[in-house]
């Protein structure tokens, strides 16, 4: 968790320093959610797919942090050799299927991944992450229906951080209990906390085991909060929330909650935690520097990989 937070701070720095461009969305405040769930799957075997807020997911699945940061900087050493950027991280050998920019657009892809594993008689589980805003998309409802119709082992995980960009949950969803959207499809569904890592891990294990065992879809809505702007370009949060609100959400900072647990149960000393904090920060900085040393792609690479077997017509 600490490494992810530091990594994200350096992602923001990359944007501020003009080393990253476009849209960049960090996971600060939401770490326990991805950490809790992605540590409970069979990594490299189970499938994971998410939207554009994807750095943490890639890191947790074991993608090389330097390759992640290099991708964020659009460098040749990046996971997609600079073609994707922050929103489009993919590491398919590690079971990570991205990294998607169209809100809701990837949710049927996740159901399709799960369909394929069922089709082949494998016992893989697919974690299909989406935002609260994405939970309104028509294609999400289509995905739920099909997932339930074909009983595919897909867990739809709504990362409910209470905002879709500058729009508060109450303003975008007629019923704000998003987990209920599983009900019309006969899908098991529940709303869970996403801040207390130990609880998140327990819930994740229980549900992943159930889905693997029963080969049926599941919908979970996990309550979390983003402590920072929607994206690096979101420069006026006062338009949609107050400082007090953010401050009170920070009372349940997932990292602080875990630290309190560790220290109050004498599992780790403050000093030890501080040492880990410093170490992971130094590690994130090293990653940043190393990524920054990666060269930009050569202009000739622009035509690579449009097709698997041919080059498009070249030139302006």
């Amino acid at each position: 968790m600490l490494f992810i937070r530091h990594f994200e701070r350096f992602s923001e720095r990359a944007y501020r320093q003009g080393k990253a461009g476009g849209y960049l969305h960090v996971y600060i405040g939401m770490e326990a959610l991805a950490v809790g769930w992605l540590t409970q799957i069979r990594q490299g075997y189970d499938y994971v797919i998410t939207a554009y807020r994807d750095h943490a997911h890639a890191l947790l699945l074991g993608s090389d942090p330097v390759a992640c940061m290099a991708e964020i900087m659009g460098r040749r050493g990046g996971l997609s050799r600079g073609k994707g950027g922050s929103m489009h991280l993919y590491d398919i050998p590690k079971g990570f299927f991205g990294g998607w920019g169209i809100v809701g657009g990837h949710t049927p892809l996740g159901a399709g991944l799960a369909f394929a594993s069922k089709y082949r008689g494998e016992d893989r589980v697919t974690l299909n992450f989406l935002g609260d805003g994405a939970a309104n998309a028509g294609v999400f409802f289509e995905s739920l229906n099909m997932a339930a119709l074909y009983d595919v082992p897909c867990i739809f995980i709504i990362e409910n951080n209470e905002f879709a960009m500058g729009t508060r949950l109450e303003y975008h969803a007629a019923d704000t209990e998003l987990h209920k959207r599983g009900y019309p499809f006969g899908m098991k569904h529940e709303r869970l906390d996403g801040m207390d890592l130990l609880q998140v891990r327990q819930d994740a294990k229980r549900i992943i085991d159930w889905v693997r065992e029963n080969q049926k879809p599941y919908l979970v809505e996990i309550m979390t909060y983003r402590f920072v702007g929607h994206g690096a370009a979101d420069n006026d949060q006062t338009l949609y929330r107050t400082k007090d609100e953010v401050e009170s959400a920070r009372q349940r900072d997932p990292i602080a909650l875990l630290m309190d647990y560790l220290t109050s149960n004498n599992l780790m000393t403050r000093e030890k935690i501080e040492a880990i904090d410093a170490e992971t920060e130094a590690e994130a900085e090293r990653v940043y520097e190393e990524a920054d040393a990666s060269p930009h792609p050569d202009p000739s690479e622009v035509y690579d990989d449009v097709y698997s077997d041919m080059t498009p017509e070249v030139g302006h």
Partner: peptide
């Protein structure tokens, strides 16, 4: 005729600038 390159728009600024027509591309045409 001058148009954008026939590729999905890449993220890297170096590659992106290759794709979008500029004055030099117009002069070449």
């Amino acid at each position: 005729r001058v148009g954008g390159l026939n590729v999905p728009m890449p993220y890297s600024r170096v590659l992106e600038l290759e794709c979008i027509p500029n004055a030099d591309d117009v002069l070449a045409a």
